[in-house]
Amino acid sequence: TTLTVNTQTYTFTSEEEAREFARRYGAKTIRKTNGTWEVHG
């Protein structure tokens, strides 16, 4: 199964959650914005 996250942004309140998600789905960018963490595919 392949998950494609081209134009979607996922927002997390903790860096740990964001990094775990990025690691699991191979997202390329993690960015902190206004106190939340954004993961970009």
Rank of each mutant, 00 (worst) to 15 (best):
T1L: 12
T1V: 09
T2H: 14
T2F: 06
T2A: 13
T2L: 10
L3G: 14
L3M: 12
L3A: 13
L3Y: 05
L3I: 13
T4N: 14
V5N: 12
V5Q: 13
V5P: 14
V5D: 12
V5M: 10
V5F: 08
N6A: 12
N6F: 10
N6G: 10
N6T: 12
T7V: 11
T7F: 13
T7E: 08
Q8D: 08
Q8C: 15
Q8S: 10
Q8F: 12
Q8I: 12
T9S: 08
T9E: 04
Y10L: 05
Y10H: 08
T11S: 09
F12Y: 01
F12H: 00
F12G: 00
T13H: 10
T13M: 09
T13V: 07
T13A: 11
S14T: 10
S14A: 03
S14E: 04
S14Q: 03
E15R: 04
E15N: 01
E15Q: 04
E15H: 04
E16F: 08
E16N: 07
E16G: 05
E16V: 08
E16M: 08
E16Y: 08
E17Q: 07
E17H: 04
E17A: 09
E17T: 04
E17L: 06
E17D: 08
E17F: 02
E17S: 05
A18S: 01
A18F: 01
A18R: 00
R19H: 06
R19A: 06
E20T: 05
E20F: 04
E20D: 09
F21W: 07
F21C: 12
F21N: 01
F21V: 02
A22T: 01
A22S: 02
A22R: 01
R23S: 07
R23T: 06
R24Q: 08
R24K: 12
R24S: 05
R24D: 03
Y25P: 00
G26A: 05
G26Q: 05
A27P: 02
A27Q: 06
A27D: 03
A27L: 15
K28R: 08
K28M: 13
K28C: 15
K28Q: 12
T29K: 06
T29I: 15
T29M: 15
T29C: 15
T29F: 14
T29H: 10
I30H: 04
I30M: 05
I30Y: 06
R31Y: 10
R31A: 07
R31D: 04
R31G: 03
K32A: 09
K32Q: 11
T33H: 10
T33V: 15
T33P: 11
T33D: 13
T33K: 12
T33W: 08
N34I: 02
N34F: 02
N34L: 04
N34E: 06
N34P: 02
N34K: 04
N34V: 02
N34W: 01
G35E: 05
G35M: 03
G35Y: 02
G35I: 01
G35N: 07
T36H: 12
T36L: 15
T36I: 14
T36F: 12
W37C: 01
W37R: 00
W37D: 00
E38N: 02
E38I: 12
E38R: 02
V39W: 01
V39S: 01
V39N: 01
H40E: 14
H40G: 08
H40I: 15
H40L: 15
H40K: 11
G41S: 13
G41M: 15
G41Y: 14
G41W: 15
